[in-house]
């Protein structure tokens, strides 16, 4: 479809307005590449919308992924002879003191799980309150209008 204008005014016809528009456009130095880019950006919106990022949820996901502290963590493989001997020393010492620090790790992991649970409840509560806030704002607007 061509670009046309529909105008009902005594001072100007649609054709005259159209002429003014095209003359104005011809006189201006438009960057066609830029115009195409913006039109394309707008058109692409129809294909997909982005998910609204929720910083709280993203932070919670990060917490969740690192909540469990591994007591039997992996050592890096390879390296020089001295590095490998050092790692071997760590592995032997770890085996001897494992019975002691396992309890510490278990206590820490217990605490981390409890914090995660509290965070999860808090985030759900925040989302609920946000929705409630929006609804209350709308209601307040109605009441103010009806005053």
């Amino acid at each position: 479809m061509d670009f046309n204008v529909i105008l009902n005014a005594g001072c100007m016809t649609s054709a005259e307005l159209m002429r003014a528009v095209t003359e104005g456009s011809a006189a201006r130095k438009y960057d066609d590449k830029e115009l195409k880019a913006i039109a394309l950006s707008a058109a692409r919106l129809r294909e997909r919308y982005e998910e609204v990022p929720d910083p709280l949820t993203d932070a919670f996901k990060m917490m969740n992924s690192s909540a469990t502290v591994e007591c039997w963590w992996r050592f890096p493989a390879g390296g020089s002879l001295i590095t490998r001997l050092r790692i071997l020393r760590y592995k032997i010492i770890r085996k001897f003191i494992f019975f002691y620090f396992k309890q510490v790790f278990d206590m820490q992991n217990c605490y981390n799980a409890a914090v995660l649970a509290a965070m999860s409840e808090s985030i759900q509560k925040i989302h609920f309150l946000e929705h409630q806030n929006i609804a209350l704002k709308k209601r307040l607007d109605i009441l103010e209008r009806n005053q």
Binding site: F3, V5, V21, T22, S25, L35, A39
Partner: peptide, 12 residues
């Protein structure tokens, strides 16, 4: 207007 030509809409 009958078409979404952003340049011409801006001029309009």
């Amino acid at each position: 207007f009958t078409e979404k030509n952003h340049k011409l809409i801006a001029e309009l």
